[in-house]
Simulated assay, not measured.
Amino acid sequence: MNREAVISAPAKSGTGWARNLVYAGAALALCLVLPFLTGQIPQIGSALCPMHIPVLLAGFLCGPWWAAAVGAAAPLLRFALFGMPPLFPTGLAMCFELAAYGLASGLLSRTLPRTAAGTYGSLVGAMLLGRVVWGAAQTILMGLSGSAFTWAAFLSGAFFTAVPGIIVQLVLIPPVVLAMRRAGFIRS
Score class of each variant (00 low, 15 high):
Pro50Met: 07
Phe60Ser: 11
Ile44Thr: 12
Cys62Phe: 05
Trp17Arg: 13
Phe36Leu: 12
Leu57Met: 13
Leu144Gly: 06
Ile166Glu: 08
Gly59Lys: 09
Trp17Tyr: 12
Lys12Gly: 15
Gly39Ser: 04
Ala99Lys: 11
Gly71Met: 11
Pro86Ile: 09
Pro175Arg: 01
Phe159Ser: 08
His52Lys: 02
Val33Glu: 03
Ala126Asp: 15
Ala11Ser: 12
Val124Arg: 15
Ala74Leu: 10
Trp134Asp: 04
His52Glu: 08
Leu32Phe: 01
Gly157Asp: 14
Leu129Asn: 09
Met180Asn: 01
Met1Ile: 06
Ala80Arg: 00
Arg181Asp: 05
Thr150His: 14
Ser188Leu: 04
Ala100His: 06
Ala24Arg: 06
Met1Gln: 15
Gly59Met: 03
Gly146Thr: 13
Pro42Ser: 10
Pro85His: 11
Ile173Met: 12
Leu107Gln: 11
Tyr23Trp: 13
Pro64Gly: 12
Arg78Gly: 10
Ala80Leu: 12
Leu178Cys: 05
Ile173Ala: 14
Leu141Val: 09
Lys12Trp: 05
Pro174Asn: 06
Pro64Asp: 00
Ala74Gly: 11
Arg114Leu: 00
Arg78Phe: 01
Phe88Ile: 10
Leu77Cys: 04
Ala47Met: 11
Pro35Cys: 10
Ala9Glu: 11
Gly14Phe: 10
Tyr120Val: 11
Pro50Cys: 05
Pro35Leu: 07
Pro86Val: 13
Arg78Asp: 15
Leu98Gly: 04
Thr38Leu: 02
Thr150Ala: 11
Leu32Ser: 04
Ala29Pro: 03
Ala100Asp: 09
Glu97Ala: 07
Arg131Tyr: 03
Gly165Leu: 08
Gly146Asp: 05
Gly83Leu: 00
Leu112Ala: 08
Val132Leu: 14
Tyr120Thr: 08
Ala136Glu: 13
Tyr120Leu: 12
Leu144Glu: 01
Ala152Gly: 12
Leu112Trp: 11
Pro10Glu: 10
Trp65Lys: 15
Met1Tyr: 14
Thr115Ala: 02
Glu4His: 03
Leu98Lys: 06
Pro175Ile: 06
Ala9Gln: 12
Leu77His: 04
Ala153Ile: 04
Ile140Asp: 02
Gly143Ala: 14
Tyr23Gly: 01
Met180Cys: 12
Pro10Tyr: 07
Ala136Cys: 14
Ala99Thr: 12
Trp17Leu: 14
Thr161Met: 08
Tyr23Asp: 06
Leu98Val: 05
Thr111His: 12
Gln169Asn: 15
Gly59Thr: 05
Leu37Thr: 04
Trp66Thr: 07
Ala26Gly: 04
Gly63Trp: 02
Gly63Thr: 04
His52Val: 15
Ala100Pro: 08
Phe96Gly: 13
Pro35Val: 05
Ile140Ala: 15
Val132Met: 10
Ser46Tyr: 06
Val133Pro: 03
Ala72Cys: 08
Gly106Cys: 01
Ser122Tyr: 10
Gly45Tyr: 04
Gly130Met: 03
Ala11Pro: 00
Ser13Asp: 13
Phe96Gln: 00
Phe88His: 10
Val124Phe: 14
Leu108Ala: 14
